[in-house]
Amino acid sequence: MAILIRTRLALALGVLAALPAVAADPPPVRLNVKPLLCVLDKNATACAVTFDIRWKSTRAAEYCLNDEALPAPLKCWPSAVSGETSHERQVTQDFLFWLSPPSGTEHVAEAKIEVLRVGSTDRRRERRSRHVWDVL
């Protein structure tokens, strides 16, 4: 009985000890895009953005950068562990940038660009202001 308890305790401790290592494992490829958010006022329908795009990989490989709105990759890199580029674009709605192998559709890493419309496109809602006491 005592041996069984000790065995279970050791197993539990082993699992606990392994958890941080699992959690700390970096993803094989990281894609960082800035800015990630376009904030629009009621009179604007699109943002003109120059995206700063950087990626890093734990091992050298060939990757292509894709834009959801375009049928072909924006840029492909030869075998490398990192890459960077900038991309100018008008943004009207949420979309994805992602990295994929040159001959594949797999999303190795992705970044979502979001468009936030402050206020409402419905003029009745947009025109109704909240009481001065209301904090939002």
């Binding site: 376009c38 904030v39 329908t45 699109a46 943002c47 953005v49 008008q90």
Partner: peptide, 13 residues
């Protein structure tokens, strides 16, 4: 180092 997103007024959309 990144310019904020610049709204475009009245773009067709």
């Amino acid at each position: 180092t990144v310019e904020p997103a610049t709204p475009v007024p009245n773009a067709p959309h």
